[in-house]
């Protein structure tokens, strides 16, 4: 069925697919610049990430396993697909499941080479997934419950397109989920103290861990996929603030910038932790913030009913 809403959704998806790498790249550039200023350095140009990726695509591709490139392209595909689902206004649960599938492809691509450093890297990447996954699912469930606690909605929903039509920003119902989500964003963005599987900038962890065996274009694909994923995750941050009021989009944009800045500060002020501490911390935060919030939501829901 073709109507204005559907066309708008299609436009949103196309804009995401075309613009997300640029937004992600520029964000990355600002990240490096701001990090450098925090360390009293001048830092590279804001456009530096684009030069890096262009260079990577022009380098020789060396790999002991040819299937690596295919697996990485699948990773890129699922990341873009997840983002397209999100910005197209589809099911939030589906979006998170797609990102998990994407991560699996990254892990497969890395482990296809059977080397020591990627071995350690993939194990750590799995631990990172274990830390992030519960919170991601909880966030999707949280949004669902917020719609059922909210009297504006006749039926509760997972659909992003319905969530943005609410009269109340979801953050009012989901402050605990929001804190938990910000926490796992540090893991997702591969920022210190949780950059244990691989890391950006000049930090080196187990010789770049999960990405150690990606050369040239293969590493370029990983970088681009990460930009897409970053934009999608920041979109979820925005979703906590968006309502039917157009002004709320400005609030959401401000929140996204603040969250990103917070991540940069955390990155620059903390030392890398071991995997077990990361695991305990993230599950602790999930249980305390997410769990409490879930309980309160349930109570509100029951009162409403």
């Amino acid at each position: 069925m073709i109507n204005t809403v559907n066309i708008l959704r299609l436009i949103a998806v196309i804009v995401f697919i075309v613009c997300a790498p640029f937004i992600g790249g520029i964000l990355d550039g600002f990240d490096r610049k701001i990090s450098a200023r925090m360390q009293r350095r001048i830092g590279p140009k804001v456009t530096q990430p684009f030069y890096d990726v262009l260079k990577l695509f022009n380098k020789e591709f060396v790999s002991v396993n040819k299937s690596q490139l295919f697996l990485l392209l699948s990773y890129l595909f699922f990341v873009i697909f997840a983002g397209a689902l999100f910005f197209g206004g589809y099911d939030l649960l589906m979006v998170f499941l797609c990102t998990s599938t994407a991560s699996i492809f990254l892990i497969l691509a890395a482990s296809s080479t059977h080397t020591a450093y990627t071995g350690v890297g993939t194990l750590r990447e799995l631990v990172q997934m274990m830390c992030c996954e519960p919170m991601e699912l909880l966030v999707a469930i949280g949004f669902y419950l917020s719609t059922s606690a909210n009297k504006d909605f006749v039926t509760p929903t997972f659909k992003v397109i319905d969530l943005v039509r609410s009269d109340m920003p979801a953050i009012i119902y989901l402050p605990g989920f929001f804190i938990g989500f910000i926490f796992i964003l540090t893991i997702k963005f591969r920022k210190s103290p949780f950059d244990i599987s691989t890391s950006h900038h000049a930090h080196q962890e187990v010789v770049k861990g999960v990405t150690a065996e990606f050369s040239g274009a293969a590493y370029g694909i990983v970088e681009v996929a990460e930009w897409y994923e970053q934009v999608m995750l920041l979109g979820v941050v925005g979703l906590f603030f968006i309502t039917s009021n157009p002004l709320s989009y400005i609030v959401a944009a401000l929140a996204i910038i603040l969250v990103y800045f917070l991540e940069i500060i955390i990155d620059n002020t903390s030392a890398r932790v071991k995997w077990d501490l990361m695991f305990k911390l993230s599950w602790g935060i999930i249980f305390i913030c997410g769990g409490t919030n879930l309980l309160v939501l349930e109570i509100i829901r029951n009162i409403n009913i």
Binding site: R32, G43, Q48, A202, Q204
Partner: peptide, 11 residues
């Protein structure tokens, strides 16, 4: 600060 030229010390 060689990073201002885009130089990164990768391991």
């Amino acid at each position: 600060d060689v990073e201002r030229f885009g130089i990164i010390n990768t391991g």
